[in-house]
């Protein structure tokens, strides 16, 4: 039971790191970044390639940098040209990017599952509450807490954070106020990608192999978490991710384990029907 709970918390934390990327982008652009899960997967693949030539202490910071660059480039290439297009176009473009990333990775790996390296520091087992856990399970929670606190500091107490809040409140007005919208959006993508890279190290260290579609399911679940907590709200996304991670692992321990993924989506549908803006979401009113 304790093992299930601890795994749940750790998986929840990993979802939280991805979910923040979704929720921040949605908060500002009103765009579901379908490619985010694939960016997460690419970052996992990168680690495999970097580890073969560099020591792990260099490889991990390196993949964070590369993932950030990737996120930035995707935004510039695929979303920037569609800034004034209908929302559906941007979403289709996001789906296209996701398709592209999956196909590129399939091409590069030849469609073979790649073995994820064991990171000695994260694979070490330690005893906690009378159970044996890997380090990855233990460090996730404090790491997420630290990252979220620093992120909320960034958003609430810095100039760029203020700009982000302004842009997410009102796109047009903040542009009139002299905020460089494109820079703010790039920063959002950079933060989201960096967190996804950190998440990918923690998430994939639990799995031995990854393939080109490995990012799709965690991506979708993290998105569900973001919606659950109220999309656009960072604390909401984190809490939603923890709830989903824990519930999923509790279900996996019952005879209904095949439905653990279905349950996530069932939560999504129920939340959307009864509280469309999520737990912490702001209520929006459509003006005619």
């Amino acid at each position: 039971m304790i093992t299930t709970l601890l795994t749940g918390i750790s998986v929840g934390g990993q979802y939280a790191l991805i979910a923040i990327g979704y929720t921040m982008v949605y908060g500002i652009l009103r765009l579901i970044n379908f490619a985010h899960g694939d960016v997460f997967m690419v970052s996992g693949m990168m680690l495999i390639w970097f580890v073969s030539s560099t020591p792990i202490t260099i490889a991990v910071p390196l993949i964070i940098v590369v993932t950030v660059v990737l996120g930035f480039l995707i935004e510039r290439a695929a979303y920037l040209p569609l800034r004034n297009a209908p929302r559906m176009s941007a979403m289709i473009s996001a789906i296209g990017v996701s398709y592209l990333l999956q196909n590129v990775i399939t091409y590069l790996t030849g469609g073979q599952p790649m073995t994820y390296p064991t990171i000695p520091l994260l694979a070490k087992t330690v005893g906690i509450f009378g159970t044996k856990q890997t380090m990855a399970t233990i460090v996730t929670l404090p790491m997420v807490i630290v990252l979220v606190i620093s992120l909320s500091f960034l958003i609430n107490h810095t100039k760029v954070g203020m700009a982000m809040r302004a842009v997410s409140k009102d796109f047009e007005t903040s542009r009139l106020m002299g905020i460089k919208i494109n820079n703010v959006i790039s920063v959002t993508f950079i933060i989201g990608s960096a967190l996804a890279a950190v998440g990918s190290v923690l998430y994939f260290s639990n799995y031995s192999k990854i393939v080109a579609v490995s990012g799709a399911l965690p991506g979708l679940k993290a998105f569900v978490a973001a919606v659950f907590g109220g999309i656009g709200s960072i604390p909401g996304a984190v809490i939603g991710a923890f709830i989903i991670g824990i519930c999923e692992n509790l279900i996996k321990a019952t005879p209904y384990s095949v439905f653990s993924d279905a349950f996530t989506f069932a939560i999504l549908v129920v939340v959307l029907i009864f509280r469309p803006t999520g737990i912490f979401g702001e209520k929006t009113v459509d003006k005619v």
């Binding site: 579901i32 929302r87 979403m91 998105f223 569900v224 919606v227 279905a262 549908v269 959307l272 469309p276």
Partner: peptide, 25 residues
């Protein structure tokens, strides 16, 4: 009946979710 009360992207995600549930079943 429940899903069509949602708008745009929420509808997309909810239907995507349902498709996954159907496949699992």
């Amino acid at each position: 009946l429940p899903v069509l009360r949602l708008k745009s992207d929420y509808l997309a995600i909810a239907t995507l979710g349902f498709a996954e549930i159907i496949r699992t079943i």
